[in-house]
Design a binder for these strands. Structure first.
Length: 479
DNA sequence: TGCGTAATAT
DNA sequence: GATATTACGC
């Protein structure tokens, strides 16, 4: 039994259409759908199988594994050209005679032809909160597709929006007739993007042009404009990653000692975090805290260079592109991270974007800033158990040089890091010798430019610190 | 004509 | 926010 779940999500993947299904299909034509069918939930259903539609009389050229079949005001990927769509709308309107009482929460729908196998009685319902409807309703879409096929014998098929009800059209921008002119969004699924990337690589990033990419991808549902748009963003993201590489290299150049030390010490800085927090040791971020972390090597890409993890970095990019890799909030542990995390990384420089969950401890690129993010923290809070109070005091007196540079760090990161550090203070302590080395370096090179993105402390902060240290007279420069 | 890019629309 | 569309220059 098909269901209208909270998301009215029914999956489609059945190869054969038996008579029962055809029967249902026919009956659907006399029914109406008032519920908008949206593409939002289709994103995860990349394996829509068009064979059903093909076998039921609908010719679809789309690669089954690549295309979603999206309905509704959100548009989507389907196997219809514009003419087909318009005819489909007309057919739908003509065929619909019954108003289904569907829950208002039902906002999207996918067809699950696999579920259609349960027509004979097996119930494949999902959650209890699902609201059942008959296969008829669910298959109306398939019927519509069939009708579309009957109305069009064109071979060329492109992604065209398909609305399934007047409600959807109303929600749409311009109604049925006019909205039909607007193409639907392409759902750049993992597989679709993988093909895209593959094509780009094959052609060479710089030499890749939309028409050639489209050719290599062999996905007829896409248009050259689709490719161009995606390519535009792809290149943009890639440039961003490269720029970040350059910045990372620049920082390593300016901070060779710190860099070398951090490399020698490996994960020592944040190693405790790996085992004491939610960081799975296997995750690349487990080795974070270093200026560079081990990137995930792309399956097909070229490793141009390791990128900084820019958590808390003032120059951290908050552009939408990062969302392309961003797992959902409150996401699973890294070990369960979805493949989407490598969305752009398949050919873009192997990098780790700042897409990780903000609640995670930031892998700040500057080791001696690894812990004292929070202004309220003092060095002693970072000291391992067993260190003497005198040693703690000494560190407290020594660290301001390093600490002062953290004053401008993003407050959220500071708060997060501070909270993390306070909760497990002993976990954030680097080895004493490293700490000494870093402090020494900072003291020996007070004029070393700040790493990119770091702002100098405010005058007020400096004055406060000086005052705290008993320095009340400061010569000011007038030059 | 096709392409790349930026701005804008949906 | 992601994608499509458009305009413009090359």
């Amino acid at each position: 039994m098909l269901t209208w779940a909270g998301m009215t999500h029914v999956k489609v993947e059945e190869e054969d259409v038996d008579e029962k299904k055809v029967e249902i299909l026919d009956s659907l034509i006399s029914m109406n759908l008032t519920q908008c069918i949206d593409s939002s939930s289709m994103k995860e259903e990349e394996d829509f199988n068009f064979q059903f539609l093909e076998q039921s009389g609908t010719k679809l050229e789309c690669d089954n594994s690549l295309e979603g079949f999206h309905f509704g005001n959100g548009g989507g990927v389907g196997g219809f050209n514009e003419d087909t769509r318009e005819q489909l709308d007309a057919d739908m309107d003509a065929a619909c005679t019954t108003v289904l009482d569907l829950p208002a929460t039902s906002s999207s729908m996918c067809l699950d032809f696999e579920s259609l196998d349960s027509v004979d009685g097996q119930d494949t319902n999902g959650p209890d909160e699902s609201i059942e409807i008959g296969e008829e309703e669910a298959l109306l879409l398939a019927a519509a597709a069939t009708a579309a096929d009957e109305s069009s014998d064109r071979e060329s098929i492109g992604p065209v929006e398909q609305t399934s009800s007047s409600q959807c059209r109303n929600k749409g921008s311009k109604g049925a007739a006019s909205s039909g002119r607007r193409k639907t969004k392409v759902d750049w699924t993992q597989e679709l993007h993988r093909r895209f990337v593959q094509a780009v690589e094959q052609l060479g990033v710089e030499k890749a042009i939309p028409s050639r990419i489209l050719e290599l991808m062999g996905v007829q549902c896409l248009t050259r404009h689709n490719i161009a748009s995606h390519l535009q963003k792809y290149r943009s993201h890639r440039r961003h990653m490269i720029a970040r590489d350059v910045e990372a290299a620049s920082w390593r150049h300016r901070r060779p000692l710190t860099w070398a030390r951090s490399q020698q010490e490996g994960n020592a800085w944040l190693a405790p975090i790996q085992t004491s927090s939610s960081f799975p040791a296997a995750h690349p971020y487990a080795s974070a805290g270093l200026p560079t972390i081990q990137p995930r090597l792309p399956a097909h890409g070229h490793h141009i260079g390791a990128h900084l993890v820019v958590w808390g970095h003032p120059t951290v990019d908050h552009s939408p592109s990062h969302m392309w890799q961003q797992p959902p909030v409150n996401t699973l542990p890294f070990s369960q991270e979805p493949d989407s995390s490598t969305y752009w990384q398949q050919t873009a420089p192997a990098c780790i974007d700042s897409w990780t969950h903000p609640s995670m401890f930031p892998a700040f690129p500057y080791p001696f800033f690894g812990a004292p993010y929070a202004p309220s923290l003092c060095a002693s809070q970072l000291v391992a158990p067993g260190i003497t109070s005198n040693e703690r005091l000494l560190m407290d007196e020594s660290l301001p040089v390093a600490l002062y540079q953290t004053t401008a760090i993003d407050s959220d990161i500071s708060a997060a890091a501070g909270a993390a550090a306070c909760s497990k203070p002993s976990d954030f302590l680097p080895p004493q010798e490293i700490l000494d080395a870093v402090i020494s370096e900072a003291l020996a090179n007070p004029c070393t430019p700040l790493p990119l993105g770091l702002k100098p402390p405010s005058v007020a902060a400096v004055m406060a610190e000086l005052f705290r240290q008993g320095i009340n007279i400061v010569a000011t420069s007038t030059s």
